[in-house]
């Protein structure tokens, strides 16, 4: 991945990474996917907006107006962009273009990372920051490069310790103490 500009969500499968300014290739499926997401968000807003209970003191535009307006805008955008992608000229262009490479990511790394994050959420309170934070750093760094786990573990523990000292000692912000909480 090489680009991180706001409109270059790094290495989108449909565009070479060096052309962030290029409009997305008119591949029908990708466009329809985005349109579906837009429409779903819009429908969610319309439903959620309709379910809001308006208090008596609501003024001229109550709490419902904005969610409903944004929802309607999104649904309209979704329909328009779907219609645009499905018009004959666009479909011909899409058919002529080479099929997009399927999204092939490194699932193993992602699974290790996700497990690390989930584990951290579960362990932060019971084990305290020192242990949970060490595991967090160690899990992510091992997922990205598993060659020197012992060094990584030491770095992880050092960082977790320093963070604990800075936050509890200097900034006075409490981090979960875990079993250490019982000592004092």
């Amino acid at each position: 991945m090489t680009t991180t500009g706001p409109d270059a969500p790094a290495s989108a499968p449909t565009a070479p990474p060096t052309a962030p300014d290029a409009p997305p290739a008119p591949r029908t499926r990708a466009t329809l996917g985005v349109a579906a997401l837009t429409g779903a968000t819009g429908v969610l807003l319309l439903l959620g907006g309709a379910l809001i209970r308006e208090p008596a003191a609501s003024g001229y535009l109550g709490p419902r107006f904005f969610p409903l307006a944004v929802g309607a805008l999104l649904v309209a955008t979704a329909l328009a962009s779907a219609a645009w992608a499905l018009r004959p000229a666009a479909r011909r262009a899409a058919a002529a273009a080479p099929a997009p490479a399927p999204e092939r990511g490194d699932r193993r790394t992602l699974v290790v990372m996700a497990a690390t994050l989930a584990g951290h959420l579960l362990l932060l309170q019971p084990l305290g920051w020192l242990i949970a934070g060490t595991l967090l750093f160690w899990g992510i760094s091992t997922a990205l490069g598993p060659r020197r786990p012992l060094l990584d573990l030491f770095v992880a523990a050092a960082l977790a310790g320093v963070v604990q000292m800075v936050f509890s000692g200097l900034l006075d912000v409490p981090l979960p103490a875990g079993p250490l909480g019982g000592i004092g």
Binding site: G128, A157, G161, Q164, M165, S168, I183
Partner: peptide, 25 residues
């Protein structure tokens, strides 16, 4: 390098534990 990192880690963990226990107390 690993030995050095280990020593630093032990020191930081000790300091962190002391702070954590102190803050909890």
């Amino acid at each position: 390098r690993e030995a050095l990192a280990g020593v630093i880690a032990a020191a930081a963990l000790g300091g962190g534990a002391w702070e954590a226990a102190g803050s909890a107390a």
